[in-house]
Amino acid sequence: MIDLQPSSEQVQIIDSVAGFLADRLPVERLVATQDANAEAEANQDYTALSEIGELGVLGLGLSEEQGGVGYSLVEEVLVAREFGRFLVSPGIIATMLAVHLVARPNEQAVAAEFAQSLQTGSIAVAPAVAVTSDGNLTGSEFYILDGAPADWVLVVAESSACLVPRADWKERRAIVAIDPSVTLERAQLGNLNGSHHCSDASLVRRARLLASAYLVGIAEAAQESSVAYVKIREQFGQPIGAFQSVKHRCADMLTRSSAAWSLTLFAALSEESRSSDAGFQVMAAKIIASDAASRNAAVNIQNHGGIGFTREHHAHLFVKRAHMFDLIAGSSALLKKRLLSADSPLRVT
Rank of each mutant, 00 (worst) to 15 (best):
F280T: 03
L145I: 15
G241T: 09
P345F: 09
V230M: 08
V156L: 11
V164H: 01
L184K: 04
R347N: 08
A98L: 09
L87C: 08
V77E: 10
A111D: 02
S262T: 11
S140G: 11
L154H: 02
V155D: 01
A278S: 07
L30G: 08
K286G: 09
M96C: 05
G139V: 04
L215Y: 06
A267G: 10
N296I: 04
T47E: 14
N191H: 12
I14M: 06
L254Q: 15
A22E: 13
L334W: 08
S195T: 14
Q281Y: 07
S50M: 09
P90M: 01
L30Q: 11
A289C: 07
Q302K: 09
T310A: 14
E76S: 14
R24I: 10
Y143K: 10
V153I: 15
A167F: 07
S63F: 01
V153K: 02
P165W: 00
V131K: 06
L209Y: 03
L30I: 10
N43C: 06
Q235I: 12
F142S: 01
H196P: 00
A292H: 04
Q66I: 00
Q66Y: 01
P105I: 06
S275I: 00
A174Q: 14
S7F: 07
G330W: 05
L184T: 05
A221G: 05
E64M: 14
G135T: 07
K336S: 13
H316E: 11
K337G: 12
V125G: 03
P180G: 07
S276Y: 11
N37A: 09
L340F: 11
A267S: 11
E41S: 04
I13R: 12
G91S: 01
K320Y: 11
I144T: 05
E76A: 11
E107A: 13
L30K: 12
D151C: 01
T47K: 10
V348K: 13
S181G: 10
